[in-house]
Design a protein around this nucleic acid. Structure first.
Lengths: 337, 337
DNA sequence: CGATTGTTTGTAATCGATTACAAATTTGTT
DNA sequence: AACAAATTTGTAATCGATTACAAACAATCG
């Protein structure tokens, strides 16, 4: 493979020479400038073809200081929650001649920094962050001079535009659904409450209980470290050990809920008869579990598409407003066997 | 947000002026060149701090024609199969001061092109492709002058270095496991056989049947379009309609296998008693299913790490050899209740 | 002190594109 | 044909870094 050394693609100068024109003309052809004679255009196009030339994005970006690249920050690619959102982002971006690059931060601030710098250094035009663990301080600083949009998780101070759903109301509806089914002892499997969405969903949970005159019991609220299947199993295990066992569970993510289902099953109980379960996110596996999972569906594709549109508008210095989208309760076997 | 217009980060000239030195000296400080007096270094570092300066990757990359960015091509982020591989790639890359960007192609050749061009244009230093649907022609062309490594799916002509497992032997072992359990009617849920791995796994399946003197029945081989859960359901449904119903199923992906499990369950049968099931990939959901899934585990992290090491070596013009890694059969409830 | 050597710093070319402005060419008019 | 106007093309500066080479400066020694 040593022969690869020293190879380098033809540049605009060589194309110009081969076509017998100036670099300016070649550049004009590349950018579809109207003031180029058909005859010279053909000459240049031939030269381009013969030399297999492709313009260097580096040179171009350096000069134009734009890259038409958008970064999408996610904490972890393994979370299926992001799949459809990314789809929405990507489709929208491409429609506007932008491309996206996925950046997995693993909640590691050094990686975050790298991606922030890509924006500062014009290697990318903007960022959509879906990482709830992100360094808010640094992100806010970045947003002072660069384009940033938050998707799903956001900051309450509103300093950065966001697109999200009404987490409190969604949780409220999920829990209300359980209560109306006759379940009086509803537990909550929540994630870490330093995340905004966790606090909001807890508020919704409590609001529903209060509305129906049910007590809010600390023993029925379990906070997990992560959103893993195993955390769901563990959470359910603890909830089953309480004196008054719950008859329903609202978990703030489908993965947690599926873990809870597994543990319910393992301990000889049946969902929904003994314990009904509601999840959150409507990931594709929520339809594959046994029983299938009742869950809150976020308009993921639309969230992604909206975030992308907002980001592109912001890059083009248009005014951008935060948006709250509608969610939907999807009822399946885990609550209505 | 209009005030963002015209903002631009300080450049090396301004730092030089503020520090009262030349740009060369600033550059030397940035690159930790030894020949800089501590006194001037401090002056420059102060100026850098005061101006909040960060060097432009564009300028630097243009000059150095390297970006220290690696592209990772995946057909779809939704496939959990890639998660651990990417983890391995990323960890290795960072160890060598490279960063990775995930590129979801959705098997769309226009997107492929964009990413290929990023490499041609030095916006990225190399590509690891895990996309079996990739345009082989174009990839081979790219690999003539740029660094490319294939991961998992590869080309038999060996023109591009790859890291993979022995698919044929893995399939052989999976099927042999089923046969040894006493199952004599083993079906195969395979994906599209224009993919190399699909052809190889089919060969392993047939080899195991032949070795035990079992017939190879066309009716027991079902090819799906995608690796979805629903394709698994559909496949199983068809297999259950055959005259001689299978007593075991080997599916070439866990998602397919989980779909098959679901359908087995839905039709009142039990796994593994009535029909045993083996999957492939050991995705995290494979031990959340009910029953948990027997499967072939690929050394995903190691595959990723190996691919990254190979790519970086290739970028640095070292000799690179293709590698075949070891897999493992993981026995769970779906074959041994 | 002046010559020689070694160290630190600066000057200017370079990477590959875009584009304002100038120059050249074509077209139109009388 | 001569000139003005409009169109097309070219020249050269520019984006922000790196680095070969030259220049300035400091240190060493007879």
């Amino acid at each position: 493979m040593v022969w690869k050394v020293g190879y380098s693609m033809a540049n605009i100068q060589e194309v110009a020479k081969k076509a017998g024109v100036s670099v300016a003309t070649v550049s004009r052809v590349l950018n579809h400038h109207p003031s180029v004679t058909p005859k010279t255009r053909v000459k240049v196009e031939n030269a381009i073809r013969e030399l297999n030339y492709e313009p260097s994005m580096l040179g171009r970006n350096l000069r134009n200081s734009e890259s038409r690249l958008l970064l999408v920050l996610i904490p972890s690619i393994s979370n299926p929650f992001y799949t459809e959102i990314i789809n929405g982002i990507q489709t929208t971006a491409i429609k506007h001649r932008y491309n996206i690059l996925l950046c997995e931060t693993n909640s590691d601030s050094r990686r975050e920094n790298i991606f922030f710098n890509m924006v500062k250094n014009k290697l990318a035009d903007g960022i959509i962050s879906m990482d709830p663990t992100i360094n808010r301080q640094k992100l806010t600083e970045l947003a002072e001079h660069h384009s940033v949009i938050l998707c799903s998780e956001y900051m309450e101070d509103g300093s950065i535009p966001y697109v999200t759903i009404d987490n409190e109301r969604a949780a409220y509806q999920a829990v209300k659904h359980l209560i109306i089914l006759g379940k009086k002892k509803v537990a909550l499997i929540n994630s870490d409450e330093r995340f905004l969405y966790a606090r909001q969903r807890r508020r919704g949970y409590e609001k529903a209980l209060m509305e129906f005159g049910l007590p809010i019991t600390d023993a029925f609220i379990y906070n997990t470290n992560e959103l893993n299947f195993h955390d769901g199993v563990q959470a359910m295990r603890m909830l089953l050990r309480t004196v008054e066992k719950p008859t329903a569970v609202f978990a703030v993510s489908d993965t947690l809920a599926i873990g809870a289902l597994k543990e319910i099953n393992a301990s000889g109980l049946k969902a929904p008869e003994d314990i009904a379960v509601v999840g959150f996110d409507n990931i594709s596996f929520s339809n594959m579990s046994n029983p299938t999972l009742t869950t809150i569906a976020q308009p993921m594709y639309k969230m992604g598409a909206t975030a992308a549109t907002m980001l592109i508008n912001q890059i083009q210095n248009k005014q951008v407003e935060s948006i709250v989208l509608e969610h939907e309760l999807i009822i399946r076997e885990s609550t209505m066997g």
